[in-house]
Design a protein around this nucleic acid. Structure first.
Lengths: 344, 344
DNA sequence: GTGAAAGCGCTAACAA
DNA sequence: TTGTTAGCGCTTTCAC
């Protein structure tokens, strides 16, 4: 049913219908009520494509994964959910970006009103190892005068009309440091994945402030696979003064460490506390369940979405990058330090 | 730039432009070439919303998860990818369904041309435990005369205009049976999750055909958590004639079995072969990496998409449900049977 | 407070 | 082969 047919059936003009639908414009509460009721009865729903054409808005947002189109992990899927929910509240839909130059076409053809770019993958790394992938996309979108917000580890260097939501990796890392210190650990190892790394620096700083120094040999930049983590743990434990707790940059590394510990008959958490990072899907399924660090994806999605709407609705009002913090997820791989590291 | 402005700039009519864009209608190769070239030069892209309105098509498909909106697992994300890619080829976009009655609104408002319903989650179960969730959605869509295809474990009972792609769970289960028999196992356990279950019946049948009987006490319907799996394994191994291989209905159950085996000092795969089902994200990360069963999500997505387009383009041409088979993923938890089950 | 009418940008009869 | 023109269904001035 078209608005015309419906209007006639109800006995009003299309204008009146349009007004009750949009809630805009002067209209008497009485007719409004009436039209609303009849919409229900007759089952009239406005044609979205006509609305889009007339309004010049697609009521749709695209989600772009910095250069790859893989929803590779829990992080991405949860983030998608978060964004999705936030958009839904405003009646917007979410279009997943497809390969090729689809994104640009969508923007130019007004299929989407804006773009959210995810510049970082499972929290750790950039999705392609290509640092500037997200910025490249953002710039392309901005060039087409469309709003764009980038979710990443660092604020985007002020591209005109591009907003950014940054995941503050340092915050969770600091929490880890605090918890470990509270539990009495002072000899601590870090298994990293790459440098520079905000997780490491946040961790380091918090320890330093409290008088604990990470010695150079206690920080191992291992790689990304569980095997890398296992190897790193062996190296750490073989040192003259082995750590009683380790913080691994990713859950994958932590899983490897867990395995190596088991092989070495080092009990977790009694003899060694282990903490991961990212809270990927299997983190709660390790044995024991892995204590780790995560970001609140719902909040992340909300923040990104709100910023996008800000850009969309009031492009002139200035705004600043939003920050979302990471947080510790306590499970069962951390225990207070014991002074002898062998079972009595 | 609108088609009118562009047409004027190029010196042709809007019709000519429209024709070169669509590739439809008679037009001389020369002008076509020329228009194409100028499109590039002037950067003209048709307004998709106008195209949608005029064509009465949204060039968009919605993806609905039988009742929940959670991209809960690798399976769903990979499936989404598969569908996405298949749609992309035809220039279609994918809209993720949102909470509430969004789906119906989208269909009625012509925001989407059709719907793909995922009626099964990580291969095992229906997403809500509510068996008919997917059918309910399918029926709603069908009532609105929109094409719909359901991905599930069973063909949808012929709702007018609803297609179905069924995942043949029996096929992978048969492969598991074959492999186990080839490896010499004859005393086999099954840790199930629910009944009835096509995996179990496929497994059972294939064994039976080859003269191996699963005794009643060798089939345990355990539940869904790793703990359930662990408990089931203990029960199986405590029997007078314990199995040398077990097939678990889900990877979660298999992970639990793996754990229990370790606790009992039963080595996998030397003393006990373990096979899971679903190939969820952590399946390759267990120790040893879990042999399991998976479905080719890309193929699944392609099949569903093709069927949807069939319904869309030739609603009258009859069609039959598509079947996609599951397949064994050999990793490291299966070994030939040893005749003594204790290390020599 | 309500309605008539002119678009929004594109497509597809129909004419030329 | 190409162009003219009347919609596609909704929004929004502008009169009433």
């Amino acid at each position: 049913m078209t608005i015309k047919e419906f209007a006639r059936a109800v006995g009003v003009s299309t204008t009146t219908v349009s007004r009750t639908v949009s809630g805009q414009g002067r209209i008497s509460p009485a007719t409004r009520e009436m039209v609303l009721r009849r919409m229900d009865e007759l089952g009239y729903t406005p044609n979205l494509n006509a609305q889009r054409l007339a309004a010049g808005r697609a009521y749709t947002v695209a989600l772009a994964f910095g250069g790859t189109q893989v929803l590779s992990d829990m992080f991405l899927t949860e983030l998608t959910q978060g964004i999705q929910n936030a958009l839904h509240v405003r009646g917007y839909g979410l279009l997943l970006n497809a390969p090729g130059n689809t994104l640009q076409r969508w923007v130019k053809s007004q299929a989407v009103d804006g773009v959210i770019v995810v510049g970082c993958g499972p929290l750790g790394m950039n999705l392609l190892g290509d640092e500037a992938q997200d910025e490249r996309i953002a710039r392309e979108i901005a060039d087409m005068k469309a709003p764009c917000v980038v979710i990443g580890h660092d604020p985007v260097t002020r591209i005109e009309g591009v907003g950014s939501v940054v995941i503050d990796l340092r915050s969770g890392a600091r929490q880890v440091a605090q918890m470990l210190m509270i539990q009495g650990h002072s000899c601590i190892g870090f298994i990293g994945s790459h440098l520079p790394d905000s997780v490491l620096s946040g961790f380091w700083d918090e320890l330093t402030v409290n008088g604990i120094r990470l010695r150079e040999e206690q920080v191992i930049i291992a790689g990304r696979t569980p095997d890398d983590g296992a190897h790193a743990l062996r190296t750490l434990l073989a040192q003259p003064e082995p750590p009683t707790a380790i913080f691994a940059r990713t859950d994958a590394l932590a899983v490897g460490a867990l395995r190596a510990a088991r092989k070495l008959n080092v009990r977790v958490p009694e003899d060694l506390s282990v903490i991961g990072h990212d809270d990927v899907s299997f983190a709660g399924l390790t044995e024991p369940p892995l204590t780790t660090v995560r970001v609140d994806c719902a909040q992340l999605g909300r923040a990104a979405t709100e910023m996008l709407f800000h850009l969309l609705d009031k492009p002139d009002v200035p705004f600043s990058p939003q920050v979302v913090h990471t947080e510790l997820v306590a499970r069962e791989t951390v225990a207070p330090m014991r002074h002898s590291k062998f079972p009595e």
